[in-house]
Design a protein around this nucleic acid. Sequence first.
DNA 1: GGTGGGATTAGCT
DNA 2: GCTAATCCCACCA
Length: 217
Amino acid sequence: MFANSILTMSPSHRIEALPDTFYHGSTVAIAKRLLGVYLVANSATGTTAGRIVETEAYLSKNDPACHAAHGETKRNRAMFGAPGTAYIYLIYGMYHCFNVVTRPAGCGEAVLIRALEPVSGIELMQKRRKKEKLTDLCSGPGKLVQAQGIAIALNGTSLDGPKLYLTRTLNGLPTGKRRPGEKIVTSTRIGIRTGADLPLRFYIGSSPFISRSISRA
DNA sequence: GGTGGGATTAGCT
DNA sequence: GCTAATCCCACCA
């Protein structure tokens, strides 16, 4: 089964991270463009990978829900880094959320990754999540961070490193982009109090792996 | 120096 | 549907 093939992959495997041009355009455009892209995580316990199926955009202007809305702080500093930087933070004292910084340094815009389709390292994800069902592994921002073993220490690092990276090219799998017939559905964002009416959540409509939260579209 | 809220989840009713 | 678990930070005193 191809899901385990990456685990036995040669250590000399070359990372094909996303090109700089991937981050051209608006944060909304990038949030949509990220649908279908692979997120790969390497740790001492093994490698996992998932295909992004749900994202949310957080903007620097007229978006009160964005962490950067009140300026740079110690907590949100990574958000003001270069495009392709990981912004990881603790939420509700228990879970972490993983974001991709999208705009040039100083802007403070990012895309929250809300759900992945598990594609590799399934057994490791099941072990970390203590869940068997594939739809329970990465169907929420806190869940996918747990399943991928993404450490808070990776906050502020560039998403082209050996421990955590984004790519369209993954070990014989189809190119990491939307496939024919997969349509982007737009809705309001999940779980926020302010800016809740903005249409900034995007997901692959046919995917069974998106978060189960009420869409409130 | 104290306090309250938040881009969540799991488990129970 | 409701709530507990749990912590960083912004804000107010």
